[in-house]
Amino acid sequence: MTAFALRGARWRRRAAPYLLLSPAFALMALLVLLPVASAANMSFYNYVLTRPWAYRFVGLDNYARALADPIFVQAIGVTAVWIAGVVGLQLAIGLLFALVLNENIRFRGALRSLVLVPWATPSVICAFIFMWLLDGNHGIVNAILLGLGVIAQPIQWLSTPGVSLWAAIIALVWHGAPFFAVMLLAGLQTISDEYYEAAEIDGAGAWQRFRYVTFPLLLPTMLVTVLLRVIWTANHVEIPLVMTQGGPANSATTLAILTIVTARGRLDYGYAASLSMWLAALLAVVAVAYLRHRARRLPT
């Protein structure tokens, strides 16, 4: 462990940061970079597991095939709605949670733990819980809405195009909002009381304190959390897959689901690899946009 004890020679001091980074990066080189390179390579081949005899180099054919595939084009739109819905709602709910949990309320400790219940529930289980809550024939949500007279007919949450995606969004929002809550709570607690005191002296009300103190100071935390969540959400498959199978009629098929279905059902690994490269490329655009925005603050 102390093999790289940093005493003495200057070159050692220079090597130290790299040595310290090496375990993390070695791990990632083996388990991310190597498979990514392998997947990139795969995406240039006609690689269908059920047809090894047809295996051959096809250049960019798989990428072009995606562009000509109406389901791929549809999936980009679905992915955008999916990400916007999940991350937007998680941010809103997480912010509400964080603001409440930051106040000096009774049972704050217990509340802070209870908020984490959904996060501690494995996502597959979340999918089953929400499938059951939203079941079109026997679900409690429909029963309550019918009982309150909000709706006249049961809503077919999982069988209506456009709605089933939102059913999955709600499930993932429930599952993931606590992450936002704790990240934003942490951000809130680093805001010094002095700002609020100053604002109060200036006669700022609750909303103004939020608008002019909390929000701007919390913004950096929000942005980075949003970025991480966008990536994470884009790659998430199990909740929408278990709840909707990407349907009906592919209306809930995100790019990540399309990739999984292509790999699992068509066993077309070449095409699946190109689909996931597309997804990574689209996410890279988001990441670059974020980095540009934060360029001045980026540690260098």
């Binding site: 499938m131 079941d135 079109g136 024939n137 026997h138 007919q153 049961p154 077919q156 999982l158 069988s159 209506t160 089933s164 909707t244 199978q245 349907g247 009906p248």
Partner: peptide, 15 residues
């Protein structure tokens, strides 16, 4: 059933 369009066996077994 109105849910038929996306029903799998779990929903059918429940019916």
């Amino acid at each position: 059933a109105p849910s038929a369009i996306n029903d799998g066996f779990p929903q059918i077994a429940a019916l």
